[in-house]
Design a protein around this nucleic acid. Structure first.
Lengths: 336, 336
DNA sequence: CTGAAAGCGCTAACAG
DNA sequence: CTGTTAGCGCTTTCAG
């Protein structure tokens, strides 16, 4: 099918040199005179030669791709297409891969049969893998088979990671709401299986305790808009006095705002809302959401640089700041 | 680094058979007796052998990856992390790749030097490429070097594609607003470089003409929230009588809703809004947006299946339906 | 500085 | 059925 592409052999013949020489030239390696280099380059241009990456990878055994792996807990298309987090990770990884000849491979593994799938990916990894949302046990196992991997979430101690202090972030969010004069601060939490969600919940709980406020937390649920919407609606009925909401992720928060305004309450007039992530959902919500920014792109970029750099010491940890980004959902006295 | 992984050779030795036999077994090919198969499988399990995909790809020459390519017109991280479209494409592609041993490679090429980068990708393609947003000329060139490619947007006639009738969709959206009794229907358009945007604009213009309404279109701009927000704000000042808005993409529409409610108008009470895409932005907006659904995931899945299927006849076209999805931003008489 | 030769790990004819 | 023999296209010693 299609014209068979010229190989390095063809170029060598056309330039009247050996394959080795062509290889040196196209790889900008020393050991080739300028005249020959010129001839080779001419041949390359004329034939439109482009090296076969597969062959190159096999022969050199050198890393050529970073693998981004995500576990999709929900069946079907899963989170990939639904949660902004993943695009941000990809954008971050791509930003450092641009200009490199390293590819980005994306893997979405379903929850069932995840172990086997992950093992295969680990075995295939070359430059290394960015683990977007593996549970600690999965990450540890993955890391055991592929040292060159880094997790984007808090995980097993051995696994290198880039992370944020979710608990501190949540604590700060609640404090901010408290500073605004809010005293009945409810919370919408994420899934128990997510260390991020667990830590954020812990931060919330510690904050309300320290501040002497009631714990108006709700059972954890998936990081999806619907959970935020439904939980907020329920919360409004159970705690009509509610004056603020801490939501564990912007996507859920976007749903929460909808439920709250639909119920006739004003945001931020009647209830202030702090989200978490600073994702697309935060800026698309109406009013736009104040949130705790998690610099996902930067983290993914850092993770990628780590992998590209070669060895990633086990247990290596890079902490990123979570900072408040204040938008309308907590604007003081705008609509009051 | 790390323990050198066992090769097929090691397995063969351990099982006391030839490499060929091992190959047959692990590929579930006929021509191996059950006893041998068992021995091989045992050896595989014991050694924890996992075939090297690179070597496999090189030896078989068989396709092993589909390439998803996006041109990022804006510098920096580009659209990838910002526009929901890309995640939807990835989710669609992944959904059909799951369970296959085919990988998904993601490429983001900057606008500058795009030609060269695209040529390289085309040369590297195996199963084929899904072109998410190439301009017709780029797509045509790409397709010339790699027949196994399909565009996700309307493009050069020669290039196979999966598409929707954007003009008809826009027309239908305007008609719907008209049916609601709206008569001053403004529009926020997308970038001139995008065939989608151009077609949607054409649909809008034809519709208002056919319906005898004024053309309240605005100059095209990037498919980003900010453009929607700012344009809507300006529109409100220039045409205070405005009672509806057709927005070329949900992300911009989400911005538009914000501007409109911030200006004190009610949605849909004072102005009804129809977006386009049915992306995350539509459901995160508040109120949720009525929109013309583009089944991006299905389209991406279809494109992938086409590639997996082998030959993709030049000029092949698959048309998908754009259907209205009605949410609150056009809810009749809810808040009036 | 250059070319010849030996693989990378696997698949794919081809003989037994 | 099974093993032997060639490569896939490139990098990489190792001689010259």
């Amino acid at each position: 099918m299609s014209t068979p592409r010229p190989t390095i052999e063809d170029v060598a013949r056309a330039a009247g040199v050996s394959r080795a020489t062509v290889s040196r030239v196209i790889n900008d390696e020393p050991g080739a005179s300028e005249p020959l280099r010129a001839r080779v380059r001419a041949a390359v241009a004329e034939l439109g030669y482009l090296p076969n990456q597969t062959a190159r990878a096999l022969a050199s055994g050198r890393p050529r791709a970073v693998d981004v792996v995500a576990v999709t807990y929900t069946p079907g298309l899963g989170w990939l297409g639904v949660h902004p987090y993943y695009s941000r990770v990809l954008a971050g990884v791509m930003s450092v891969l641009e200009g490199t000849d390293v590819h980005l491979r994306l893997h979405a593994v379903g929850a069932s049969g995840a172990t086997e799938a992950l093992d295969t990916i680990a075995a295939q990894a070359t430059v290394g893998a960015v683990l977007t949302n593996l549970e600690p046990a999965q990450a540890a196992r993955f890391h055991r088979r592929c040292r060159r991997s880094v997790s984007m979430v808090t995980t097993a101690a051995s696994v290198p990671s880039v992370e944020v202090d979710n608990a501190a972030g949540a604590y700060a969010a609640v404090e901010h709401l408290h500073r605004l004069g809010r005293r009945r601060i409810a919370a919408i939490h994420g899934p128990e299986a997510s260390t991020c969600a667990v830590d954020r919940r812990a931060g919330y709980e510690r904050a309300v305790r320290d501040l002497g406020l009631p714990d108006l937390g709700t059972p954890g649920g998936d990081f999806v808009r619907e959970h935020g919407h439904d939980t907020a609606a329920r919360l409004l009925q159970e705690h009509p006095g509610l004056d603020a909401l801490f939501v564990s992720c912007d996507l859920m928060a976007a749903g929460a705002v909808q439920a709250i305004t639909a119920a006739g309450r004003r945001v931020p007039g009647d209830v202030s809302i702090m989200g978490f992530d600073d994702s697309l959902a935060a800026v698309c919500a109406n009013p736009p959401l104040s949130t705790m920014r998690v610099p996902v792109e930067d983290m993914a970029a850092a993770a990628t640089r780590l992998l590209l750099g070669g060895d990633v010491p086990a247990g290596h940890r890079e902490l990123f700041p979570v900072a408040p980004v204040l938008r309308q959902s907590t604007a003081a006295g705008r609509f009051t």
